[in-house]
């Protein structure tokens, strides 16, 4: 599917960059809708990684290090981990080291910083997929209220792309059996209807599937 896109693209580099950015979500149809994994798609991912391999040294978490490289490292880790899960040991020999989390990994229910934290989690929403788990997911499990507040805040600010990403964590938590302080279904539908653009549409589609699990 994505392989065909790269092959037919005028600018294969841009197509591969898009795949790198899409990351683990490239496999959303596989892990959420039972679509088969095509070896060529796995190869496309591998190609996107070989063109710019993740560094061996893991970027420091903010505020110790800049946000950009740390986010990219987490996303790459998600992509590579999911690819490995899906293809097994015989798959692409890609590696992406797992970064650390900041010290304030999850705000307690009434702690300050829930807004910034929820936005940060939204930036890592591509990790909210079946087949991935780890410290980020544990942070989500510990703070459903902070995520719910973050999604509420984003919707009211009319920042629908951010809302779609944070709501995705709520959908993931629901699929993980965590009790939520609000109903994720109507929230996801609301964002999906009011948001424009492909990225929120994709996040919404994934959220719907997660809720249905």
């Amino acid at each position: 599917m994505v392989a065909a896109h790269v092959e037919s693209a005028q600018d294969p580099g841009a197509a591969l960059a898009a795949i790198r950015i899409l990351g683990a979500d490239t496999f959303a149809p596989v892990v959420l809708a039972g679509a088969p994994l095509h070896p060529e798609d796995a190869a496309a991912i591998a190609l996107a990684f070989s063109a710019l391999p993740p560094g061996r040294d893991v970027p420091l978490p903010p505020p110790a290090g800049p946000e950009g490289p740390w986010l990219m490292a987490w996303r790459d880790w998600g992509t590579v981990t999911l690819l490995t899960v899906l293809t097994g040991r015989g798959g692409a020999r890609l590696t992406a080291p797992r970064p650390a989390l900041p010290a304030d990994a999850a705000p307690a229910d009434d702690a300050a910083g829930w807004a910034e934290w929820s936005v940060r989690m939204g930036q890592l929403s591509t990790l909210a997929l079946p087949g991935l788990d780890g410290p980020v997911h544990d942070a989500a499990r510990r703070s459903p209220l902070a995520l719910a507040r973050g999604a509420t805040r984003a919707v009211l600010r009319r920042d629908y792309p951010t809302a779609a990403r944070i709501a995705r964590w709520l959908a993931w938590l629901r699929s993980d059996g965590v009790r939520l302080p609000l109903d994720a279904g109507p929230l996801v539908e609301h964002i999906g209807l009011l948001a424009g653009g492909d990225r929120p549409a994709l996040d919404t589609a994934i959220s719907r599937r997660l809720i249905a699990l």
Partner: peptide
Amino acid sequence: MLSQTVRPREITLDHHALTMAMAEPEA
């Protein structure tokens, strides 16, 4: 086959642009 169409050394990905595109800050 993808590997026949695109050779790895032909592709360069802009690290900075990629990082920026992955950042997705709030509005």
